[in-house]
Design a protein around this nucleic acid. Structure first.
Lengths: 98, 98
DNA sequence: CATTCTGTTCGTAAATTAACGAACTATTTA
DNA sequence: TAAATAGTTCGTTAATTTACGAACAGAATG
């Protein structure tokens, strides 16, 4: 049995941090943590990036587990994934208070 | 005067988060936030990566402002950059408690 | 049914990241 | 002074990230 150096928490935090590692994504996260939900179109209007680029960033956040999308045709409603957000909160708070 | 969409805090947090976005770097940060300082050699012994790769990761952390190195010939002593660490703590805690 | 609206996916290009070994630099020790 | 130690820098390669516009897909509306 090989000794595992990196802890699961370190890997999880790195994954979350990576998703937070872009200003656009921080913007989206901050918005969604404040206002419950938003639509991709709202963001495209405010942000100086192509909608396809925004879509990619949203996918990043979704893949990392930070947000989730719900179809509300013809739009998609994005909100925080509360369970994972809670996990990230706990991990980072613990880490930061060491 | 163009309206600036992204806040300085969002940019700063993205920068810090990016540096935290790798398991090896999280490992180093956690170690240094617990034990005041360490030497590159200590890390190379424990981590399954080449010393040149570790050096790159340490440079990342240094460039992000998280750590600083002090020559203690023939070694280099690394420790947390307390000022910036404090800033990151404040930014992230504020962000996470929204 | 054709058009519009909303957003994703595709294809592409440029830049950045991650990893390694070899070569190098500076200091210490024999 | 020669050898050993500690770590960085260089050169390279492969993979990932970021960005864009064009094309596409699904639902709503005229």
């Amino acid at each position: 049995m090989v000794k595992e150096i990196l802890t699961d928490d370190q890997k999880k935090m790195a994954r979350y941090a990576k998703a937070m590692g872009h200003p656009i994504r921080m913007y989206v996260l901050e918005l969604l943590s404040k206002q419950s939900c938003c639509y991709s179109g709202d963001l495209t209007e405010d942000l100086p990036i192509a909608k396809s680029t925004l879509s990619q960033h949203l996918k990043e956040l979704k893949d990392a587990g930070f947000i989730q999308g719900e179809i509300e045709a013809p739009r998609i409603k994005y909100c925080i994934n509360k369970e994972n957000w809670k996990e990230a909160q706990i991990l980072f708070k613990k880490f930061l208070s060491i």
